[in-house]
């Protein structure tokens, strides 16, 4: 998925020590135990059910599996998923 532009951006970010999540438009994911998942900078929700949530991000599709999953908050920039989280993985 990485284009030539992304590589240049990555190089500049490394060189100037800029925060990568901003330069590369990457999601920032915070996991609070297995209770809450906080995703900053997402690209929309693909699938949502109580056992599986798929969220589109710049780094690929983030797949969250667990039980009793609910979306606490959803706005353009962030999603908060609460419930019992078993697995978080990226699919390219």
């Amino acid at each position: 998925m990485e284009t030539r532009g992304d590589l240049i951006k990555k190089g500049i970010a490394d060189l100037l020590e800029l925060p990568r999540d901003i330069v590369l438009d990457l999601p920032k994911i915070t996991l609070l135990g297995n209770l809450q998942l906080y995703i900053e900078n997402h690209k929309g929700i693909i699938e949502y059910s109580t056992s599986l949530v798929r969220v589109n991000t710049k780094a690929g599709i983030l797949v969250v599996t667990g039980s009793c999953l609910t979306i606490r908050t959803i706005v353009v920039e962030e999603i908060i998923i609460v419930g019992s989280i078993d697995r978080v993985e990226f699919l390219q």
């Binding site: 929309g44 929700i45 693909i46 609910t70 979306i71 606490r72």
Partner: peptide
């Protein structure tokens, strides 16, 4: 396609919370 409904809503700046899936 309820996911699309959510995505559209948030891009229109509609604030949602406590979203819960009841069934498919």
């Amino acid at each position: 396609n309820l996911e699309r409904f959510i995505n559209l809503a948030i891009t229109n700046n509609i604030y949602f919370w406590d979203i819960e899936r009841v069934n498919f």
